[in-house]
Design a protein around this nucleic acid. Structure first.
Lengths: 243, 243
DNA sequence: GCGACTTTGTGCGCGTATTCACAAAGGCTT
DNA sequence: AAGCCTTTGTGAATACGCGCACAAAGTCGC
């Protein structure tokens, strides 16, 4: 049976709730920011403010990792950074392959956030002969035919799919067959994968549509037209985020 | 008061659950795919499969929009496309400005998914003098100084922030002051905005970290214990640098 | 026109997530 | 050493989302 993009996975014995896992990277970023500013300890209230969450939620999230705070004082920044990094698996390197070197693939290849957090790009692959061989961000684009070689050879464990929609499922099947169990999908399709494979999806178009929905509602509900709804203070407006 | 990205639904009278709103674009995409293949009607089971969700969930989601199905038959594709489009506010055009024309901004500017769904890019803006004036995807990059002019002049209602982290909050404050109430943020920071402004965040690095977490667990738990598990000694652990 | 069949729409129970509010725990001052 | 003050960690209440399972509703064949 093929499972679909279901992020509400079963808890393991160690059981960190999925919602918590999704917030840990945010805390981590806030913490490294504090670290850079030389802050040694931080209270849950301060850190929660920096991360944009409720402080009780932050404390409960951190409590799932263990008791790393000191009552009356707060959390030691450096130690917390280490604990969260370890929990997220960032104390080791992860090897990534980017498949599809169009506009987006190029942007991803040049994204600094990869290397800085322990993600190493082992290869850029594309099916287009005119792109293969090009040098991008210091890497040479390989032909998609070499997909299996590269995955096996470099020990790729995360595949980033940035192909056109039509090619995505086929590529996904191949990377999964080659042993990859984590996929980050930028193509606007729902990927089917076997159980045990994680897929996360990033979709610009969907995000815009969700924004449009709320924007429309601020402007007066479905059917009403007024895209230039700026300025005003919408009553009972909503706040969202999250990805 | 400045609310951050914690969020909670303040249900309006019309009250479509946020979880449902987030799925509507997925259904819409599946439906247009069916439409292209000439399918006239579809059952909840089929559509759910195409969208990668449970069929009961699909039916419940659609029931929030009204009763657009026929028992014993299914849903008329064309009609459903229209209803969802209308609910999402896609029957009107939304004017978008992209701020920050680096690798990512360029990719976004060239992204076909904009126009196809009623999102019109009214401007590309950047602070870098060497980029201003360049022609990208048929548009000329404007200087960030013209931000307010462009927002007002074109009736921009959605701002896409693709700047470096350090510049994001400042840009956000400016677009909000200029009347924009919907922001799509690609910068790796938590933006603070006044109530009534929606922020959605897309963060590659966070997605990768979540995948890493699950990948690590599959590999045998957050172990790989470091002998130096001591308190203040974050060993040669990964060093984090803000992108 | 009628019965069998298909598919929707939804009531209900369950598990997860969020938030409040407070007792327990530790540091700091005197 | 004792008491005060701050902040953590968590019990409990609430809200939310999911999916099963089924009755209601409509179609289709005869």
């Amino acid at each position: 049976m093929t499972s679909r993009q279901n992020h509400h996975r079963v808890r393991a014995e160690r059981g960190i709730p999925e919602a918590t896992v999704a917030r840990l990277p945010v805390y981590l970023r806030a913490l490294t920011g504090l670290q850079d500013r030389g802050v040694a300890t931080v209270s849950s209230e301060e850190l929660a403010a920096a991360a944009g969450v409720n402080s009780a939620k932050l404390r409960k999230d951190l409590s799932h990792l263990g008791s790393y705070g000191t009552r009356g004082v707060g959390y030691e920044v450096e130690y917390l950074v280490y604990q969260i990094s370890r929990e997220l698996g960032l104390t080791q390197d992860w090897v990534v392959a980017i498949i599809g070197v169009g506009n987006l693939g190029r942007a991803l290849a040049g994204y600094g956030g990869f290397a800085s957090r322990g993600f190493r790009v082992a290869g850029l692959l594309d099916a287009d002969e005119s792109i293969v061989g090009q040098e991008i961000s210091g890497m040479t684009v390989e032909h998609i035919d070499r997909l299996e070689d590269i995955i096996a050879g470099h020990g790729v464990s995360i595949a980033v799919i940035a192909t056109p929609a039509g090619a995505a499922q086929g590529v996904c099947d191949r990377v999964v067959a080659a042993g990859v169990t984590s996929v980050l999908n930028f193509a606007p399709v729902v990927l089917s994968v076997p159980d045990g494979v994680d897929v996360r999806k990033v979709d610009l178009s969907i995000e815009l549509q969700i924004l449009a929905f709320h924007e429309q509602r601020k402007a007066g509900g479905p059917g009403d037209y007024d895209p230039v709804a700026g300025g005003g203070a919408p009553p009972g407006a909503t706040q969202y985020v999250e990805a």
